[in-house]
Simulated assay, not measured.
Amino acid sequence: MMDTSYDMLKACRSSHPDSSDENIETSYVVGDEEFLPIKESSVDLIVSCLGLHWTNDLPGAMIQCKLALKPDGLFLAAILGGETLKLELRIACTVAQMEREGGISPRVSPLAQAFSFWLQVRDAGNLLTRAGFALPGVDVDEYVVRYKSALDLIEHLRAMGETNALLQRSNILKRETAVATAAIYDSMFAAEDGTIPATFQVIYMTGWREHPSQQKAKRRGSATISFNDIQKQLGNGT
C-alpha cells in the first residue's frame, strides 16, 4: 500500500490492525505516483483508488504504472472526474465569494489538472492508450451523497484531504463567506427533506501490460460478414 502522506498510511494501518491475512505480506510505502518506487516488470496488479487526480503529470504516472507491471499485468484505477461537485458546491462558492469578497479563489483542487483542467470520460480512454496499455476499458458512475448542510460537506472534504492544494490560493475561508456559501447551496439545491446533494463522478479505468496471449484486433478488411447482413438477421429494430 502506497500513499504520499505518512499520516494517512499510519491512520490506515491503525484502523485495520487485524484485517491483514498473515499469509499475505503487506508493505506500507510513502511514495509519489510521479516517481513510482516500484521496479520495472515486478508486480501483477496495480490498483489506484481516488488518488491519480492529484498528480501533476497524469500520463507520466500512468506510464510508470504500466512499466511496473509484469507482462499481462492489470492496472485498475478509480479517479474523480470533472463533474465532481461542479454543479453544486462550485456554483455556491463562486456566487458567495463574488458577493462577499468581490472575487473568487478555488476551494477544491482542480481535478486531474495536469492532463486537462477537468478529466472527462472521453479523455480516460485516450490516457490509457497514450500510456501504452492494451485492451483499455473505461466506465463511469455518478454518486449523489446527501448532507445535512453545506458546512458538513466542506468538513467531509477536509477530512478526505480533497480541499484545494494549489499554491496560489486564499488560505483562509472567511466565516461570512462560508455562511453565505451554505445559504446559497441550501436555497439552490436543497431537497424537500432539508438535505443538500453533492455529486461525485468516479471514472474507472482498466488496462493491461501487453502480452502475446491477449486478444488482438483483426486485420482491417478481414471481416467475412458485413454489418448490413447482421442488420438483416437482427431486424431493423434498435
Rank of each mutant, 00 (worst) to 15 (best):
R107S: 01
G103S: 14
V145D: 15
S105N: 12
M98W: 03
Y143N: 09
G137T: 08
P59Q: 10
T94F: 15
V145M: 15
V121G: 04
P106S: 06
D139G: 09
K70M: 10
I154D: 02
L76K: 04
I63F: 01
T163D: 10
L167I: 09
P71T: 01
L128K: 08
N126M: 06
V145Y: 15
A92M: 06
W118E: 15
D152G: 04
M98R: 02
A131H: 04
Q113W: 07
V138S: 05
G103H: 15
K148D: 07
A159E: 05
Q120A: 04
F75Y: 15
R100V: 11
L153M: 09
V95G: 00
A114N: 13
M62I: 02
L119R: 03
F133Y: 14
G137S: 13
P71N: 02
Q97S: 12
G132Q: 12
E88L: 00
V140K: 08
L135A: 09
S105L: 01
Y147M: 09
C65K: 04
G82E: 05
R122L: 00
G73R: 10
R122N: 05
G161P: 10
V145L: 15
D152W: 00
L67I: 01
F115P: 03
W118F: 09
Y147D: 06
M160S: 05
T84A: 08
P106T: 02
A92S: 14
L128M: 14
I104Q: 04
I172N: 05
G132C: 08
A165D: 01
P59N: 11
A92T: 03
G161V: 05
D152K: 07
L166F: 07
L111P: 00
I154R: 01
V95K: 13
L128G: 11
N164G: 00
E155N: 13
A96G: 08
L111F: 11
D57M: 06
P136S: 07
Y143M: 07
L58Q: 08
L76W: 00
R90A: 05
R90K: 11
H156A: 13
M62C: 03
V144Q: 11
W118T: 03
A68S: 15
I91F: 12
F117R: 12
